[in-house]
Design a binder for these strands. Sequence first.
RNA 1: GUCCAUGUAGCUCAAUUGGAUAGAGCAUCGGCCUCCGAAGCCGAAGGUUGCAGGUUCGAAUCUUGCCAUGGACGCCA
Length: 631
Amino acid sequence: MIPQAGAILGLMAPNTDFFETIDPAAALRNRFSDAILRALGDDFRDSDPVIRATTNPEFGDFQVNAAMGLGKRLKRPPREVALEILQAVDLDGLAEEPEIAGPGFINVRIRTSALVEALNSIDADHLGVAPSKDTHPVVIDLCGVNVAKQLHVGHLRSTIIGDALGRILERRGRTVLRENHLGDWGLPIAMVLHRLRIAGIDLDALKLVDLDTAYRDGQLVTKMDVRGMEIVEDRNIGPHRIIELEEQNEGAQQQRNAAAETLVALQQGDAELVSDWQKLIDCTMRAVVDILEKLNVLLGTEHNRGESFYRTHLPGIIDTFVDGGLAVRDDGALIVRFPDRERPMLIQKSNGGYLYATTDLAAIRHRVVDENADRVVYVVDARQRDHFKDLFDAARMAGWGVTPDGHDVEMVHIPFGSVLGMDKKPLKTRSGDNVTLASLLDEAISRGRTEVHRRAGDENAPTHGFSKEELDRIGEGVGIGAIKYADLSNDLVRDYVFDMDRMIAFEGDTGPYLQYAHARICSIIAKADEDPDVVSNAPLIIGEPAERALALQLLQYGPMITEAARHLEPHRICTELHGLAETFNSFYQQCPVRKAATDELRRSRLRLCDLSRRVLADGLGLLGIEAIQTM
RNA sequence: GUCCAUGUAGCUCAAUUGGAUAGAGCAUCGGCCUCCGAAGCCGAAGGUUGCAGGUUCGAAUCUUGCCAUGGACGCCA
């Protein structure tokens, strides 16, 4: 075969060629695409052959579903069209003789030699994952720390989903900018500063509890009892109660004014206040970093880009909308209207103040115009759906739907569901407070450790005799892996119930099950004690149905990562890995590895084990779950 | 009131985006360890995909109406 010019010059090969060698489905797509063109003419140059894995092994490995659709378009019987495609298709070296079935499905069985060839191709560092050609960065907005507040369950999902998406995109070679859009500016922060000052707290010895207290007090003190007022008026309750409430409201107003003054001073750069403000952030972040480390996410203070970062951009944002005629005054406030809905978006208050929408617009502008990102991903809970719809539409109106170099920008909101308690209501402690993330993780780690220690007690267990420290470390990986897998393994939009017992279960569709599968493969390879170079060069023998099934499963990995990256859906990877673990376990049950009939078969199967292990470890890595060697 | 999600086996969830007989895992029942890690494997049972219509060769998926649950709805973030 003559190498292509690109290969000679050392350039990256076109993706179609990459796929042709690693992915039988893509090879079939090319062959059938050509066949459709030959059989039906130039009008059908771009029609998709619709290659799918079969639902049933009886139908072969892949099915071609194009004939039905084409039959409709041509007003001809689909089976007849299928036959013409079959007469035109060249499957030489790739597949056995295909068959037409049902209304016009074409069933294809891949030749064993082609399977072996494809496996050889993915047996490399890339494992069949196709590199992306897009050099624009992707911004992922995740975590969403609020300064002066502890992380709670609400932050769990944003953080681990965002981290997984980042790893998946990076795996395809994209440049990912993780940005933690800190809530570090505005009235609530000023209020906390004000409270800490009147409480006389030494900010150099600031603790998390002080912040919690100040925040809660601030909320309480400033909250006007509007509802109480309405009830009193409705029911015509005595005047002394009204006076009491009015006094309370007056107090609230005073507190608000004090906070507002603090905010103004902060905005004007009052040196002492700014220094105090920084101490507040540092204190919050110390606790956050501790949790992020436990969670095993690729996120740190270097990814902080809070609201305060955009504060000088806000007047310019307003100008853009006013000058462009995109916003109008309404009741004193500045609003953006949309052609297809009633609901407007407020971007400036009647008193001239800015809103979170203003900051979010500034952030989009910065990410697109200054950072040149062509994909901006917001991992924020589903309740903010409407807000992001407005935000994205407004940003496009302002011209930020295209990068400076003319590339369309994809703005996506990942609207994840809530974490619920066993009562199916948002997770709360018994006293009604939000559950802190720290306590949640401590529970997970403690449960993981308990399980690992318990099993190590069995003298037949591979971990028997491990030190307490080793077992603790393994247990931590198991506990954290359990909650991450439980979170990532279902469709993100759904709510889910936080049930530690189910998550930590070592059987079924769980993180620990996958970690176990990985550990077991490691164990097989270690016990075989074969020279790794010999194994990695051993010819693959695909004979048994279980070997064939494993081969097909392994070949799905790369294309699946591409799909998961395109749709930003980590749960596809979970499904894929669980399928791989099951297929491997089945293979392992049916095909002796160490005791295989011949040395050639033994090395071939060891090579399949090694490839399975690497794919499993790679996939777990994309989910941010530790691939444990012994557990 | 308006708008937006969600509704699939007893329970928790999938379904390659319109494809063949709707699949997994728990739980239940039955097999498999003097045998490479039984944290495993093999099998059985379990369904009017919320309800009713529509679109077509073909619908859990698209469409219309209704029901249920949750959420968002102008100066909080």
